[in-house]
Design a protein around this nucleic acid. Structure first.
Length: 266
DNA sequence: ATGACGGATCTAATCCGA
């Protein structure tokens, strides 16, 4: 059977409920993982999503910041959250997707801290938090469970062509060597497959985020690939496609992130 | 200048995003 998973930093699920609805009705992924929902769970417009064919949701939220949610056409079993860095914030949630005829898939939905401006963990506690968060990801996901997927806004653009200018971004938080090496370590430790790059060669520029501050985001096209879908090694043979839905960055009142899709044939 | 926007909050100016 075919399974399509999307991840999208929505930058407020309540303000952009119509954009989520547009994604669900026009692109019809099986599962959508959202980050920066910026909403308590009970205020997420889940009725709207249910009416569009997504009656299942597993989420964690807080007022104003962070927040992660998994919406699904298939039944979900809440698989809990990991309290990375013991902050008690809503940056991770996990679920098992019940696929009936075939074995379930585990999904981990993550929102890694942005890390502030100064890429110095001694001077900037936010950057320190980010580095520790990534270290904890590496430790926790070093031995992937079978049939699992790790997705989310990882806030790191790991490859040279994941940013508009490798050279100019080497000292910019999201593309510093300590971050990209940390993320690569987490990926290789578990043998995780960067599913997007399975289908878009590393020699090609590819972004999932474009700043709100540009006068014309599409014309300047100075983006970064911050949003990722990783698959456990055993799912490698089942990968059938991947894409960044760049058009969504141009929708009305958009998020600054575009949705990222991966398709499996399971 | 990459580039000065956009969201949430104790609705005003402040924190945060990356």
């Amino acid at each position: 059977m075919r399974l399509t998973i999307a991840t999208w930093n929505i930058n407020s699920v309540r303000l952009r409920e119509t954009l989520v609805a547009k994604l669900l009705s026009e692109k019809a992924p099986d599962v959508v993982c959202l980050q920066e929902t910026k909403s308590p769970v009970d205020l997420i417009p889940r009725k709207l999503f249910a009416e569009l064919g997504y009656p299942h949701m597993v989420a964690r939220g807080e007022k104003g910041y962070n927040g992660v949610a998994i919406l699904s056409r298939h039944a979900l079993e809440d698989a809990g959250q990991i309290d990375f860095c013991a902050k008690g914030d809503a940056r991770h949630v996990a679920a098992k997707v019940d696929l009936g005829a075939v074995s379930p898939i585990a999904i981990h939905n993550l929102y890694v801290p942005a890390g502030g401006d100064e890429p110095d963990p001694g001077a900037n506690p936010k950057f320190d938090h980010k580095l520790k968060f990534v270290e904890e990801i590496a430790a926790r996901f070093a031995k992937p469970e079978a049939r699992s997927v790790l997705v989310g806004d990882l806030n790191i653009a790991p490859l040279e062509n994941d940013v508009w200018s490798h050279k100019q971004l080497l000292k910019i938080v999201s593309h510093t060597p300590v971050e990209t090496e940390g993320l690569s370590k987490a990926q290789t430790a578990g043998g995780w497959i960067d599913t997007t790059r399975r289908f878009v060669p590393e020699s090609e520029k590819l972004y999932s985020w474009w700043s709100y501050r540009a006068r014309d985001w599409a014309a300047s096209d100075k983006g970064r690939r911050l949003d990722h879908i990783w698959a456990s090694p055993d799912l490698g043979d089942g990968l059938s496609g991947a894409q960044v839905l760049k058009e969504a960055r141009g929708w009305e009142k958009p998020s600054d992130h575009a949705p990222v899709f991966t398709e499996f044939e399971l």
